[in-house]
Computed example of a mutant assay.
Amino acid sequence: MASDHPDNPTQALRGRGAVSNLAGRFAQSTSALESDGWDLEAPPPRRLETEALPERAKSIIATNRSPDLPFEQSINPYRGCEHGCIYCYARPAHAYVDLSPGLDFETRLFFKPDAPALLERALRKPGYRCKPIALGSNTDPYQPLERDKRLTRKLLQVMQRFQQPVTIVTKGQLILDDLPLLAEMARDNLCQVAISVTTLDNALKRRLEPRTAGPAARLRTIEALRYADIPVAVMAAPMIPAINDSELEAILSAAHAAGAEQAAYILLRLPHEVAPLFRQWLQEHYPERMSHVMSLIRQSRGGRDYDSSFSQRQTGSGVFAQLLAQRFRISCRKLGLNQRRQTLDCSHFAAPPRAGEQQSLF
């Protein structure tokens, strides 16, 4: 039995992060193209177009009780992400729909057209208790597909009507299209935004997360959000040993200069299929560093590619992880980051009257 999908190109494709369509862990059988010896010349890898299909969801708010996550409920209007970040911990979710966490994850996308209606229905339920909703916890809510579908904007409009607080993490410039709406929500203490900045190196960005905004554009996004009085943080994530970890202080400093007041970082996570996909990426782009990078990762994950325990999965353990945490704390202290925590306001949540309903006078 071969290990990969027939569409495995075996080398990097322009504008794509993964270098293969590695089979998902639930696949019953897999296949791969093999040469019959008659190939006179290897054909060039074909261009992979992005395909987006509707997904009919029964509900839209996901809940979690993970002690290491700063939210209890989240919404993901999209499944899969065209940004193509090779390190994305959400890639394994594509295996649940019989697709590859590799190239399929960034080329075969799903959108939830009923998401705004489902959200309104959920917020109107008598038993709903208002808590901040994290928008885009699994894939980026401002990936390129948002330009056409505008599902994130429609969800925000529903939240504003209900006075429902929201947090957003993104690396997409499309968030600037919603700046007026977010500014209105921020005035009522209903939203916070975190911009993910993984590297300040454009060449590394193109390999690591090919269809994302460049580093300078993300810093300008932080600046625009801060200018609009929208609380903004920087996510220096993920920190990858011997790839971008040396940039931690520079990222924090640049983000602070742009207006970020809060900061966080996450050590690279390699759950399920992400580990072999990441090793393929290293072999393609940094073969001379591959063994060193993986050695540092294992030193930080109890001798394995990944440790999923709540106490370890975000920050790791061991000498490298401890030094990274110390560097982060020192840099934040020097820059004045994380000096105060803002809590979003849930006290004004209320279901607005439906069309045709008479609002109570009392």
Rank of each mutant, 00 (worst) to 15 (best):
S3Q: 15
D7K: 11
A12D: 06
L13S: 03
V19E: 08
A27K: 09
Q28I: 11
T30F: 04
A42R: 15
P43I: 12
T50F: 08
T50I: 15
K58A: 14
I61E: 10
N64L: 14
P77S: 06
Y78K: 02
R79E: 14
E82Q: 12
G84I: 03
G84L: 07
I86A: 07
S100F: 01
L103G: 02
T107P: 01
L109A: 03
K112R: 13
D114G: 12
A115R: 04
P116L: 00
A117T: 07
R124Y: 06
Y128R: 04
R129H: 11
L135A: 09
N138I: 15
N138A: 15
T139P: 02
T139W: 03
T139H: 04
T139Y: 03
L145Y: 01
L145E: 14
E146R: 03
L155G: 05
L155A: 07
Q160F: 12
F162Q: 09
F162P: 05
T167P: 01
T170Y: 06
G172L: 01
Q173Y: 10
L174E: 11
D177S: 13
D177Y: 09
A186K: 05
R187H: 11
I195E: 06
T198S: 13
T198V: 13
L204K: 10
R207A: 12
R211E: 06
R218N: 01
R218M: 04
A224S: 14
V234R: 02
A236D: 04
N244P: 09
D245M: 00
D245I: 00
E247A: 08
L248N: 04
E249A: 15
A250Y: 05
A254Q: 09
A258W: 03
A258G: 02
E261S: 12
A264L: 11
P271T: 06
P271E: 09
L277A: 03
F278G: 02
Q280S: 12
V293P: 07
I297D: 00
Q299M: 12
G302K: 08
G318C: 08
G318T: 02
V319C: 08
F320Q: 01
A321R: 00
L324Y: 00
A325M: 05
F328E: 00
R333L: 13
G336H: 09
L344M: 06
P352M: 08
A355K: 13
A355E: 15
G356E: 06
S360H: 04
S360A: 15
L361D: 15
F362T: 14
